[in-house]
Design a protein around this nucleic acid. Structure first.
Length: 653
DNA sequence: GAGCACTGC
């Protein structure tokens, strides 16, 4: 993302800019981009396209009547790119060049080049479906095919067509991608021309195993130490693995073995890298190893795109990844270890060639590589679509069921989303036409899953908005609980103070209330194993949600210690995720009739309440309900009488 | 009696 610094004397910015491969192509590029309504721009890493294209357009006066938006899948990328381009244009950030991400808007009326997350542009579009403030939209990193980017493809294409029909200022669309999916992008955007940019990637030598490996961890271990014995110590190794547990285990093994190596073999610094690691520990991957010591980084796919580490000479690719899959029939998400795609394998290999030539050891045969699927399945085909469908409806897309997706979701997934939104009262279906209800419109204004939005909108009826806003905010961050496995007993003792027999939601609310009482004191967080950074995020989310409520003229009250009201409200919002205790002591999810179990991390693990609502189902070793709230059957029936008259064992009608 | 890849509004 950022340009490498060479030597101690900084090269002037304009010289740096002219050295980029893209500079040579500037005249032809501008000539084409000026004329084309849409273009696909293919460029390798290091071509400079993301920082230069927006400046070229601006300098050439293309799209000067409005703002040029450049979208990124990740916040950090949007922020740092804006910083870089502001520097290059010698302007201060927030003037000519700015950025907008959630909770942060560094733009002004002067801003012409606006870097933003794709999710942010999508949210803005609710108030402005034609995207009239923009003259150019640049969709960067399109090959990643995030859910937001995929929805944006359709939204931008629709806006472009509508603006032409209405004789408005035209909207230029530029899709930027790495070398893949080229034809798919071009076909989708009305056979737009594809422009290729030269990159600055260094050559990478690929090695395959001769035989398929039954144990990729063992194979990784052997490969690490082979490289360690042969290569110069300044050559660092990056190993792609699937998850925290196996990374920590292999890290221990490597550290043990490296203590007992023969003379002549230098020391080794083994570093684990995964997202749930505290930020301070994540930063360790950037520190150079002491002289004569080799750095070995064991990482999840976080190092594929989100974290870029310099100095990597060797990549070891296990060929495996942990990812979510979605079964539309059961509505179930499955988290499972599976093979990577070819595109992903190339992305991993590319991490070895960022500053110099590199080597990549694939722990599978060439034959196995050939059998990998070419592209990772786009996220839109792997997840629950109720939020997406609601969002599209709020954008006023006329025929949502036949929305022009670049890659169609499974028909079952769209159907499941519509059914769920109907149950929540967000949609009405009349003769094959679905329309948004007034409630649905309000629901769409929250950056939340529809069922959480519903719970918030119902909360004034139960006079517990403050509590529900808190709970929903707590649920929408990763986790506020910190569970170091080595201090289990201490964690349990600390948490007992807050534990509620009414479930995890109320327990979380107790923790949040205590946190606010001590004004977010860091020491208190440490003592109580609370992640203070994520708690800070909870506060920001709550503030955002409260603002939306106020705009909707909602009356926000607190119910104090009346926890029954809170649980009733949650039952009304989350009734689709209800489960019922069976005579044999097991649970059945009422929606899918799937047999489910209470996750052992729940405070209700040993309790056996007759009815619960839960946040999500996750299929790992079993199908687990996570984050449970104890409810009464009557509340569920009250929330959706017709639905539950079919579902409940002991339904009272 | 488990364990959760990664993003984002």
């Amino acid at each position: 993302m950022l340009l490498p610094k060479k030597g101690n004397i900084p090269t002037p910015l304009d010289v740096q800019r002219k050295r980029l491969p893209i500079y040579q192509a500037k005249p032809q590029l501008l000539n084409q981009l000026r004329q084309l309504p849409s273009a696909i721009l293919i460029g390798e890493t290091g071509s400079g396209k993301t920082t230069q294209i927006p400046q070229y357009l601006y300098e050439a006066g293309i799209g000067r009547q409005g703002v040029i938006a450049i979208t990124q899948p990740r916040r950090v990328a949007a922020i740092s790119l804006a910083g870089r381009v502001a520097e290059e244009t010698r302007t201060s950030l927030g003037k000519l060049v700015g950025y907008t991400v959630r909770f942060e808007d560094v733009t002004s009326s002067e801003t012409k080049l606006k870097f933003m997350t794709d999710g942010m542009l999508l949210r803005e579009a609710i108030g402005d479906p034609l995207m009239l403030r923009y003259t150019v939209v640049v969709l960067d990193e399109a090959h990643e095919r995030t859910m937001h980017t995929d929805v944006l493809f359709g939204v931008v294409k629709t806006a472009q067509r509508r603006r032409r029909e209405l004789n408005k200022v035209p909207l230029k669309v530029i899709v930027m991608s790495a070398t893949m999916d080229v034809d798919l992008f071009s076909d989708y955007f009305n056979k737009s021309p594809v422009l290729y940019l030269e990159g600055r990637q260094h050559p990478i030598q690929i090695y395959y195993t001769k035989q398929p490996q039954s144990d990729y961890l063992q194979a990784a271990l052997i490969t690490i130490f082979q490289i360690h014995q042969e290569a110069p110590p300044s050559h660092d190794i990056l190993v792609f693995m699937t998850g925290q547990e196996e990374i920590e285990a292999l890290a221990r093994t490597c550290r043990d073995i490296s203590k007992h190596l023969p003379d002549g073999c230098g020391p080794m610094l083994v570093i684990a890298l995964y997202a749930s690691l505290p930020p301070a520990q994540q930063l360790r991957v950037f520190q150079p190893a002491p002289k004569g010591c080799r750095k070995v980084i064991l990482s999840t796919n976080i190092a594929e795109t989100s974290v870029t580490i310099s100095g990597i000479k060797y990549v070891i690719d296990t060929g495996m990844v942990k990812s979510k899959r979605f079964n539309p029939d059961s509505g179930l998400e499955i988290l499972a270890v599976q093979r990577v795609s070819k595109a992903q394998a190339w992305q991993r290999a590319g991490r070895a060639g960022r500053e110099d030539s590199g080597l990549c050891y694939r722990l599978y045969t060439e034959d196995e590589f050939d059998k990998l699927i070419p592209m990772t399945v786009p996220e839109i085909q792997r997840c629950n679509l109720s939020g997406v469908i609601l969002h599209l409806m709020a954008l006023g897309i006329p025929d949502v069921l036949n929305f022009d997706f670049m890659s169609k979701p499974l028909p079952g997934a769209i159907h499941a989303a519509v059914v769920q939104l109907e149950l929540l009262g967000a949609l009405e279906k009349k003769e094959q036409q679905v329309t948004l209800t007034a409630l649905g419109k309000k629901m769409a204004s929250f950056p939340l899953e529809p069922r959480y939005a519903k719970a918030i909108l119902l909360s004034p009826d139960f006079s517990c908005s403050e509590e529900v806003l808190g709970i929903v905010s707590l649920l929408s961050v990763d986790t506020v609980l910190y569970n170091p496995p080595t201090r289990r007993d201490e964690v349990l003792a600390a948490r007992r103070k807050f534990t509620s027999s009414e479930g995890d939601h109320m327990t979380l609310l107790n923790i949040y209330r205590a946190f606010k009482k001590v004004s977010g004191n860091k020491e208190w967080c440490r003592e109580n194993f609370v992640n203070s950074r994520n708690m800070g995020l909870v506060k920001a989310v709550q503030a955002q949600l409260r603002e939306i409520c106020l705009k909707l003229n909602m009356k926000l009250e607190s119910c104090g210690s009346d926890t029954v009201s809170v649980r009733r409200c949650l039952a009304h919002g989350m009734f689709v995720n209800a489960a019922e205790l069976q005579p044999d002591g097991s649970y059945v999810a009422l929606d899918s009739h799937q047999s489910v179990a209470v996750h052992p991390s729940s405070v209700l693990f040993q309790a056996k309440p007759a009815y619960v609502v839960f946040n999500e189902l996750l299929h790992t070793s079993r199908c687990y309900m996570r984050d449970l709230c104890l409810v009464d059957a009557e509340w569920l029936v009250d929330a959706a009488p017709e639905y539950f008259s079919r579902k409940l064992r002991h339904a009272k009608s």
